[in-house]
Amino acid sequence: MTHGYNFAYLDEQTKRMIRRALLKAVAIPGHQIPFGGREMPLPYGWGTGGIQLTAAVLGASDVLKVIDQGADDTTNAVSIRRFFARTAGVATTTVTTQATVIQTRHRIPETPLRDGQIMVYQVPLPEPLAKLEPSRAEAARMHALAEYGLMQVKLYEDVTRYGHVSISYDYPVLANHRYLMSPSPIPAFDNPKLHMSPALQLFGAGREKRLYALPPWTEVRSLDFDDHPFRATRAPQVCGLCGAADSYLDEVVIDDRGSRLFVCSDTDYCAGRQEAGHGG
């Protein structure tokens, strides 16, 4: 049931082109590959890169989960899930363990991923050096020669100014000991989940028309100093709904008087815990 569209919206040649780029990306973990991005029926910044990658890897028997800021029920997540249900006729789910393909913006699920799953990350700025080196050609040369001292200088400046590295999301990582990589705007809290993940992780930037990948079981190291090691930080609260003390929390305003509640950003994880009898 695809309502007159080709399976998963994109034509087969485009999907092949993206798959070829993905194969190259998987072969060189963390290395950005340009691809001929197509116009998609939603604006840049809403996940056009991720959608094209999902379209390219999706099969008829896949089960798709889409999250935005950890939630399955936000506008963006609902729209994208519906988009693929309509154009590919695939089954969708909100349950992390049931999904075979998970497209995400800003989070990695709390529930550990497993072998055979594919994570698709929506990436606004694929170039981790962009803020430090204005010249794209020079940034490419720095990648080619693995000259990443400048990124370390940025961390040095952070530690000097704030006493710790102040990057709280999109915290730069080194993939497979070689390429400096943007993990997309996930919180630094999620960085350890990138490391040695059993899932295949794909990253797509629609506006920049670049993609990159981490094959399963890739070593991913967050940049740091020996004497200022990387630390995954979270709000020092427990979830107000499920009582989780190990999950990434969002702070939400719950009434007109400004009362606040810390809750799991991963709605599926939180719901699962509540069903199992945990409470806030």
């Binding site: 001292g149 370390q152 200088v153 040095y156 400046e157 000097t160 100093f225 004497d227």
Partner: peptide, 23 residues
């Protein structure tokens, strides 16, 4: 970049990863 960071850059480019020693 701070004066210290400017001096430390070449060390970090050579792989120095100990903040205290770089400083």
């Amino acid at each position: 970049v701070t004066a210290g960071g400017n001096v430390g850059e070449r060390l970090m480019a050579q792989g120095a990863r100990h903040y205290g020693r770089i400083r």
